[in-house]
Every structure is written in structure tokens, then in C-alpha cells.
Design a protein around this nucleic acid. Structure first.
Length: 420
RNA sequence: GUGGGCGUAGCUCAGCUGGUUAGAGCGUCUGGUUGUGGCCCAGAAGGUCGUGGGUUCAAAUCCCAUCGCUCACCCCA
């Protein structure tokens, strides 16, 4: 049996309604905040991501789906959207069009990680990017937007965590300080953290090792290394959140894994999913546009994992079962009436009625069971002595009432169904 | 990449101190008088017991390998 590739999933018909509900929620809120949708290709030149996200990050160094195509170009399936959106922003010279662009997307992403609860190799994200302003208000709006979508979808048990990573110079100084602090404690660190000491020292804060946590609780904090300006930006973001009464906690351990973040970073976590509890993450990236060859442009954004949101929703019981519905089911009483039924279905469907019939030559009883299972509002019997007289019989599946109607002119049936 | 758990019917699972034709519930299908659903009743279909090897008179059951799923680490959304 051929199976779906590891880490990919089919979304089956009965799961679609929740996906659509989430997509609609996203579209709604995005429009309230005046974000415009953007769609970019599924794959890009590899260099876009290696340069944008950072060569040393896990995503680039070991998780990308990269291949050489027939024209010898190195292609990569997008592992995230920000780099692509920025590429489009630069390529189409959007900065010339207007100062600020507020963009959103809903799309699939690809990363070759080991699958687990809330983590797939092909997964879906929605997100927003506001390119062209350094206003702390926009950072706050970004958090408000992400939070509003999750709330509006029906999620509870959410926590917002924010932090500031400052600008690169400040961060470098902090890293140096951190290295000094950890130097004589190095041997006490876990094996993973020893590696992180070299690769990405900030990530040691993320460690779940008890000893590491103990060591890091005494470590210097990034907020103490921020400049006046960075600190002011951070304070403003917080005050805007306070103004609109959005609760958050400052988490100096919140370190994003992508290289391009500057100043504000945030994450929204849920206690309703497994270990992969971050439903949403984002922050400011003021240097990325320039780094990718565009004009120096400040920007901020976020991305949210749709599978995780859906999972949290199921675990919280906030999902809404959509009742299957059918306006009318046509029951064929004798095999010979096939053509008549087919013609009637054509008329009803042309008039905008959800119509179904039997394709398996089953008994009347079986057809009725089917109509019931499909939750048909009405059943129309075609055949028998009534049909000989030129009539069809309409049955209301709720009340059980039946009435004879002329087969030639189905207008009364149609208007009855449309009016109810 | 590392570690734990699990692979028996479409689904959820039982059976696993080795022993005749491998079970249940749900679902599906067909019937319960000429042409009518839901509830109820009856019957039926449906399984290479993940795959390959080994031990044995005998393997779903024990051993090994392999593949897959899953959870966690890692990382991230």
C-alpha cells in the first residue's frame, strides 16, 4: 500500500469544516486590522532562506527540503514565510508604492523534522508581516492581532510571553557576558547545552535539564544589556498592551530561533497541546530587508501553526461540528425511473438546491436510510402509481408529512424548499 | 539524529503463561410481506494478526531483524 510521506497528513472531508472555520476567522480578523493577503510560491531559491533565516540555524542547517532541479538551480520548499514575503516586497519594489505594507498569508510550510504532536513535515501557518514602520504600536498590534485570532477561534488557556533581544550590537555584548558567566560552569552543563554554548548560546535558556535551569536562573539577563533606545521601545510596546488590557508576561528566556529578530519578540503558548506548546511566535526584524538586498526597512510580524491551533481546539472542546445537510434526496421507486430522477436532479440543482440520489441501484428502504444518514430535509419519491398519474411525492423528513405534487412542474417544490 | 510506547476487521480494541475453523462493539450491506428513514430485531460481508526470518510437532502469542505509527528529546509554528 502506498502511504502518505512521513510527516504529511491528508485532511479528510469531515475535518475540512474546522480548517475552513479557522481560515475564515483568520481572514475576518486580518480584514478588521486591514491586512492584505499575499501568496508566494511554494519553493524559492535556496539562498533566500540560508541568507534570510541564518546559515547556522537548525532550520537551514538540517531541516530544509532542498534539491537541485533540472536546470541545476538549488531549490528549497519554503520552511517559513517571512523570507518569501520580504523577497516579494523587494522584488516588486513595494516600498515605492506606499510606506507601510500590512500583509498576511495562509500557506503550507516544509521542514524535515521528526514528527510529533503538533509538529509535521508539511504543516500550515498563517501569519502577518507589517513592513515599513518601527512603531512600537505595530509590535503591540501584532500581538493583539495574533491573540484576537486565537481568542476568536475559541481558544482559552493562552499565555502571551514577550521579550526584547535588542539590536545585534547589544545582543553580542550580552552573549559575551553570558559566555563569561558560563565559562567556569561549563562542565556542569548538559551535553546539549555544551553544544549550544558554541552554536547558539541563548538557547541554553530553553533547556529542560534541571541543572541547566538552575545555572541559568543566576545568569545575566538580556534586558540589562539593552540600550536606552531599545529599552524605550520595549517599554512602549508593553504600555500599548496595557492600554488595551492584554495580559502578558515578560520572559527574558524567550529566544527566537531565527537570526533575523531584533527588539521585540513574542510567543503565544497554550497548555492544551503537547510539548510543542507555542501556537504562535513572532517579533520585529528591522535588518532583514536590507540583508536581503532591499532598502533599510523596519518590520514586524508573526506566524502561527494551524495544526497546533486545531489540536488545542479539539483538546479544549472548542471545535464546532458542522451538521451535514442536504435539501432533498430523490428516491427512485423502480429501476426504470433512473432517467426521470436524473432529469429532476438537474432541475433542482439548477435552482440551487443541494440534491442527492442513489447511484447503486439500491432498494427504496436503503435509499431512505441513506437520505436519513445524509440528514436530508426532504425526500422526493419518483415512481409508482402517483408517477403514472403525473405526480411525485414530497416527504418532510422531520414531520413525516407527504404531499403529491405535479411532476412536470417542480416550481412548488423548489419554492417550498427555498422558503423553509 | 537519540530514546520510550504501539502495530490484530473500515474504526476502537480484546485475545499474547504458544494448542482445533482469530473475537467483540461501532460502522457497512441485506432483510423484518407488495412502495418509505431514525429506534428495535435478525442475518451477512469483511482479517496476508505490519513485513521477513528463526525456535517449535504447533506461533497473533516466544526470539531477532526490518518497516510504519506515536510520544518525548532536539528544534520550532
Amino acid at each position: 500500500m502506498i502511504k502518505a510521506i512521513t510527516g504529511t497528513k491528508d485532511i479528510l472531508p469531515w475535518q475540512i469544516s474546522e480548517w475552513k472555520r479557522l481560515e475564515k476567522t483568520v481572514e475576518n480578523l486580518m480584514s478588521y486590522f486591514n491586512y492584505k493577503e499575499i501568496r508566494t510560491p511554494t519553493f524559492e531559491e535556496t539562498v533566500l532562506f540560508s541568507r534570510g533565516i541564518g546559515e547556522a540555524t537548525d532550520i537551514v542547517s538540517k531541516e530544509m527540503y532542498t534539491f537541485i532541479d533540472r536546470s541545476e538551480t538549488s531549490i528549497t520548499l519554503k520552511p517559513e514565510m517571512t523570507a518569501s514575503v520580504v523577497r516579494a516586497y523587494i522584488e516588486h519594489k513595494l516600498s515605492k508604492k506606499q510606506n507601510l505594507h500590512k500583509l498576511y498569508y495562509i500557506s503550507s510550510m516544509y521542514r524535515q523534522e521528526r514528527p510529533q504532536a503538533g509538529r509535521l513535515r508539511e504543516f500550515h501557518q498563517f501569519g502577518a508581516e507589517a513592513i515599513g514602520s518601527n512603531a512600537p504600536m505595530l509590535d503591540a498590534e501584532m500581538i493583539e492581532l495574533a491573540y484576537s485570532i486565537l481568542k476568536s477561534f475559541g481558544l482559552k488557556n493562552l499565555d502571551i510571553k514577550i521579550n526584547s533581544l535588542g539590536v545585534p550590537a547589544e545582543r553580542e555584548q550580552y552573549k559575551t557576558e553570558l559566555r563569561n558567566y558560563l565559562k567556569d560552569k561549563f562542565e556542569l552543563l548538559s551535553e546539549d547545552s555544551k553544544k549550544r554554548f558554541e552554536t547558539n548560546i541563548l538557547r541554553i535558556f530553553d533547556s529542560k535539564d534541571e541543572k541547566d535551569i538552575e545555572i541559568m536562573s543566576e545568569a545575566p539577563k538580556i534586558l540589562d544589556f539593552l540600550s536606552e533606545e531599545s529599552l524605550k521601545h520595549f517599554e512602549e510596546v508593553k504600555s500599548y498592551l496595557d492600554e488595551i488590557e492584554i495580559k502578558y508576561s515578560v520572559d527574558y528566556k524567550l529566544v527566537r530561533g531565527l537570526d533575523y529578530y531584533t527588539n521585540t519578540t513574542f510567543e503565544i503558548v497554550s497548555s492544551s497541546v503537547g510539548a510543542q506548546s507555542a501556537l504562535c511566535g513572532g517579533g520585529r526584524y528591522n535588518l532583514l530587508i536590507e540583508q536581503l538586498g532591499g532598502p533599510p526597512t523596519p518590520a514586524t510580524g508573526f506566524a502561527a501553526g494551524m495544526e497546533r491551533i486545531l489540536l488545542a481546539c479539539v483538546n479544549e472542546g472548542c471545535n464546532k461540528e458542522e451538521e451535514a445537510s442536504l435539501d432533498i434526496y430523490l428516491v427512485r421507486m423502480e429501476p426504470a425511473k433512473k432517467t426521470a430522477v436524473f432529469k429532476i436532479s438537474n432541475t433542482l440543482r439548477k435552482n440551487g438546491l443541494k440534491t442527492e440520489m442513489d447511484y447503486l441501484s439500491r432498494s427504496v428502504k436503503a435509499q431512505m436510510r441513506e437520505a436519513n444518514r445524509m440528514n436530508a430535509r426532504f425526500v422526493l419519491f419518483v415512481g409508482g402509481e402517483e408517477f403514472e398519474k403525473g405526480s411525485v411525492v414530497l416527504k418532510d423528513m422531520e414531520t413525516g408529512e407527504q404531499q403529491e405534487l405535479p411532476a412536470k412542474d417542480l416550481t412548488p417544490v423548489i419554492s417550498k424548499l427555498k422558503n423553509q
